[in-house]
């Protein structure tokens, strides 16, 4: 059995846009993937198009969307941390890092994928990435797993340079699009807007989905 890959994000659908191709490639090769999803995206503003979710039904809907997305991406181990959307940064950061560290110690992952702290725009994204880095820092440097981060702040390239990991996921693009569409409440409007291009496999739209980019965290 190969060492697993650990994916840590705060919101259901964070994995869909930039990582679900990579995840699909791993699981298709038999590499187990564990996904820590910290919240249920309870505060999301997308309610489906036409609207079908309410503020109260949204977490239930997103939970089943998340489970379906995991099934489609081949993720068999989903760990929901039960935090609330938009509050990750306000929690006790030391305790949160310890929860992540427990999972790292349990799994001994070959790779962790998360957000780059400070370069991921949403405070939950930054706090999530920071918790993972803080957790890994508690291990001796030689024992820390490789951490590949997603970053999309405007100053990313300026500060961090070009991403050092670029993964072509064109061979699993249909799987990736199915994961994206599984998060129906969040992606339906976008998918509708792009449906023609997606159906026609428009090179510009597809280009954005085909290459997944990561920055390896440097200690």
């Amino acid at each position: 059995m190969q060492r697993p890959v650990l994916v840590v994000f705060p919101h259901p659908d964070d994995e869909a846009f930039g990582v679900s191709g990579s995840i699909s490639k791993f699981t298709n090769q038999g590499i187990p993937v564990t996904y820590i999803c910290m919240t249920l995206g309870e505060m999301g503003r997308n309610m489906g198009k036409p609207t079908f979710a309410t503020r109260e039904s949204l977490p239930h809907i997103r939970r089943s969307e998340l489970e379906e997305a995991c099934r489609l991406a081949g993720i068999k181990d989903l760990r929901r941390f039960g935090l609330r959307d938009k509050t990750v940064e306000f929690e006790d950061q030391e305790q949160l890092a310890d929860r992540v560290l427990e999972v790292i110690k349990e799994l001994d992952p070959q790779l962790i994928i998360t957000f780059y702290p400070g370069y991921s725009v949403h405070p939950d994204h930054d706090a999530c990435g920071a918790a993972v880095i803080r957790a890994a820092r508690k291990l001796p440097e030689k024992e820390r797993p490789v951490i590949n981060c997603i970053a999309f702040a405007h100053n990313t390239i300026e500060d961090l340079g070009e991403p050092d990991v670029k993964r072509d996921v064109s061979d699993v693009i249909d799987q990736k699009l199915s994961v994206l569409q599984a998060h129906r409440s969040q992606t339906e409007a976008m998918v509708q807007a792009m449906k023609e291009q997606i159906d026609a496999k428009d090179p510009e739209v597809m280009g954005r989905f085909i290459t997944e980019k990561f920055w390896t965290y440097k200690w």
């Binding site: 609330r84 509050t87 940064e89 306000f90 929690e91």
Partner: peptide
């Protein structure tokens, strides 16, 4: 940003 954690919820 400010978050206040209550027994059963949040203020933000």
């Amino acid at each position: 940003r400010i978050g206040l954690k209550m027994d059963l919820g949040w203020i933000y």
